[in-house]
């Protein structure tokens, strides 16, 4: 079975009474960048956690390399699937390099120390993500963008074939948003890592993703290429907002322009 095969099969999930996700099915294509988009509360992050095996669906299965993820050991999963979670706060001071070294953990035995080879992999990952210059600084002293690069370096140090990212550009300024998505694209094109990224930014997701999954109220509303998924009709139906969608003059990616006078009056 393909090393970067990931398939979501008929999953339904609920935290409490009502279903958060219902009957979700799709296959992640090898070496693609798949974006998961949708409004707040549509179940994007929950879907990512299910795909990473951190939550267990009440119905359906997640297949990783042909096996149900719930039957795999966490260490086995971590060797082929890396996750960049949304919350990366740490209560104790760790250096960035120590954080990235933790990415080698799934490859190490209980009492095994990191070898020179592990350190080389870490150094390479930090070079690749442009984070080596803050290797000796504590993680909690870094800016949001720098910190995200360190966390992505840690995921890269796991030497995964699949990487899942949960809103990697949340709370970042424009320059860092683009920087992170450029990095994701390089990881995908150069390292051939299959990427699944949750994003609430339709323009960024439309520009960098090969395909999009659009969620609405816990169900798949549409799956396909960005130009098929991001349309003014769908945006109005899913987000309840009127928008013009045209094409980016250079890249040709769909470009969303919100129509201000039609934004529903919520605050008044």
């Amino acid at each position: 079975m393909d090393r970067n095969h990931l398939e979501v099969k008929h999953i339904s999930f609920r935290y409490a009474e009502s279903w958060t996700l219902r009957e979700i099915s799709f296959t992640v294509q090898p070496a693609e960048i798949l974006g998961i988009v949708g409004p707040n509360g549509s179940g994007k992050s929950t879907l990512l956690k299910l795909m990473a095996g951190a939550l267990k669906p009440q119905q359906g299965t997640i297949q990783l390399q042909g096996q149900s993820i719930s039957e795999l050991k966490r260490r086995e999963i971590a060797r082929s699937l890396a996750v960049v979670p949304q919350n990366t706060d740490i209560p104790f001071p760790f250096l960035s390099s120590e954080i990235v070294l933790m990415g080698r953990s799934p490859h190490l035995g209980l009492l095994q120390m990191e070898s020179a080879e592990d350190r080389r992999i870490v150094e390479r990952a930090m070079t690749y993500t442009d984070s080596l210059s803050f290797a000796d600084r504590p993680l909690d002293e870094l800016s949001g963008g720098e910190r995200q690069r360190v966390i992505i370096a840690r995921a890269l140090a796991q030497e995964p074939s699949i990487m899942l990212l949960d809103e990697p550009t949340a709370h970042l300024d424009l320059k860092h948003q683009v920087g992170i998505f450029e990095l994701i694209r390089r990881l995908n094109r150069e390292q051939e890592i299959t990427v699944v990224v949750v994003s609430h930014d339709l323009n960024l997701a439309g520009t960098y993703c090969d395909r999009l999954v659009l969620l609405r109220d816990g169900q798949i509303y549409r799956v396909g290429q960005p130009s098929d998924v991001i349309t003014s009709e769908d945006i109005e139906r899913v987000y309840g907002v009127r928008a013009i969608v045209d094409h980016h003059p250079i890249s040709g990616a769909p470009r969303v322009t919100l129509l201000e006078e039609n934004v529903p009056e919520t605050g008044k």
């Binding site: 951190a54 999963i77 890396a82 979670p85 120590e98 933790m102 953990s105 209980l110």
Partner: peptide, 23 residues
């Protein structure tokens, strides 16, 4: 003490520790 490296990962939070292979 033999689980010292796992304690490093737990400091990252339960979710991150899970993704890095900790039960």
């Amino acid at each position: 003490t033999s689980y010292a490296r796992n304690f490093n990962l737990l400091v990252l939070g339960e979710e991150s520790a899970t993704y890095l292979g900790v039960d």
